[in-house]
C-alpha cells in the first residue's frame, strides 16, 4: 500500500515538474504577446489579460519606423546567404563526403574551427574589406559577412549527410561516363533535398538572428535588419522605452520563426544533432 502511495506521489511530482518546465519555456513569449496588446497606462499594470486588446502598438511599429523595410532587409539578407551557402556547401560536401584525398581531415577541422571562432576577432579586418569594396551600409556587406558562420555549418552538416549515402549511388552513373558535375546535379541534388532543407532552415534562423555584424556594418534605419531595429527602438529618453512597441515588433518577427520551427521540428532536431552529436 505505502509503496503504491509512494509511486503515486512520484507521478504527481513528475507531472508538476513537466508543467513547471512548460510554463518556464513558454511564459516569457506569452507575456510579450500580452504586453504588445496593451497600450498607454495599461502597460504598467500587471493585469494578466489585455481586454480589450489594443492594436496601436502594431500600427505604430509600422507607421513611425521603417519596420516593413527592416523585415524585407532581413528576408533578403537571410535568403541570399542561405542560397549562397547551400550552393557552395553542396559542392564542397560532394568533394568532402564522396572523395578521399590528402588534407581532407585538415580541411574539415579548419572548417569546424572557423564555425566556432568569435565574430569580433574578424570585425576590424571585415570592416576594412567591406569599406574597400564600397559595401558599407549596404545589405551585400551582410550577405558577405554572414558566410563566416553559415558556410562552415552548411558544409559540415551536408558532408555528414553525404557520407551516409551508399557508395554504389554514383558509381553506375560514373561508369556510364557522366561527369562529376552531372552526377552532383542529377544524382545527389534530388536525394539531398531534405538534408538541404534542414540545413538551409537552420542557417536561415542563424542569419535572421544575427546582431553584431548587422549593428556594425549598417548605419541608417532603412538598412537595418530586424534584430538591430528591435534593439535600437527607443523612446523620448532612455528611461521611457516604448515597451509596448518593442514587444509588438518582437512578436511580429518571432511568430513566423516559431511557426517554421514547429512545422519542421523533426527535421530541425535531426539537423542540430547531425551538426553537433555526430560531429
Amino acid at each position: 500500500m505505502s509503496r503504491r502511495l509512494k509511486r503515486q506521489i512520484g507521478r504527481v511530482l513528475f507531472v508538476l515538474l513537466m508543467v513547471a518546465i512548460a510554463i518556464y519555456t513558454v511564459f516569457p513569449f506569452a507575456w510579450a504577446i500580452i504586453t504588445s496588446l496593451k497600450s498607454g497606462s495599461a502597460l504598467f499594470t500587471a493585469s494578466p489579460l489585455p481586454i480589450p486588446p489594443a492594436w496601436d502598438n502594431y500600427v505604430a511599429t509600422f507607421r513611425d519606423r521603417p519596420f516593413g523595410r527592416n523585415i524585407l532587409n532581413s528576408v533578403i539578407v537571410s535568403g541570399s546567404v542561405v542560397a549562397l551557402s547551400l550552393a557552395l556547401g553542396l559542392s564542397a560536401a560532394y568533394a568532402l563526403g564522396r572523395a578521399s584525398f590528402r588534407g581532407r581531415g585538415f580541411l574539415l577541422a579548419t572548417i569546424l574551427a572557423v564555425s566556432m571562432f568569435p565574430q569580433v576577432a574578424v570585425l576590424s579586418g571585415l570592416f576594412e574589406l567591406i569599406r574597400w569594396l564600397g559595401l558599407y551600409n549596404n545589405l551585400l556587406s551582410l550577405v558577405f559577412s554572414y558566410l563566416i558562420f553559415t558556410l562552415p555549418f552548411t558544409v559540415w552538416v551536408l558532408t555528414t549527410f553525404m557520407k551516409e549515402l551508399p557508395k554504389e549511388l554514383e558509381e553506375a552513373a560514373m561508369m556510364d561516363g557522366a561527369s562529376p558535375f552531372i552526377v552532383l546535379i542529377r544524382v545527389f541534388l534530388p536525394i539531398m533535398g531534405p538534408a538541404m532543407a534542414t540545413t538551409g532552415l537552420l542557417a536561415f534562423i542563424a542569419a535572421w538572428n544575427e546582431f553584431l555584424f548587422a549593428l556594425t556594418f549598417t548605419l541608417t534605419d532603412e538598412m537595418r535588419t530586424v534584430p538591430v531595429a528591435i534593439a535600437l527602438i527607443s523612446g523620448a529618453s532612455s528611461f521611457e522605452l516604448p515597451w509596448g512597441r518593442i514587444m509588438a515588433a518582437s512578436v511580429i518577427v518571432t511568430v513566423p520563426l516559431i511557426l517554421l520551427v514547429l512545422v519542421f521540428q523533426r527535421r530541425i532536431v535531426a539537423g542540430l544533432t547531425a551538426g553537433a552529436v555526430k560531429g
Partner: peptide, 8 residues
C-alpha cells in the same frame, strides 16, 4: 526559446 532571436 531556441528559435527566438537573442535580441528579442
Amino acid at each position: 526559446p531556441w528559435a527566438i532571436p537573442t535580441v528579442v
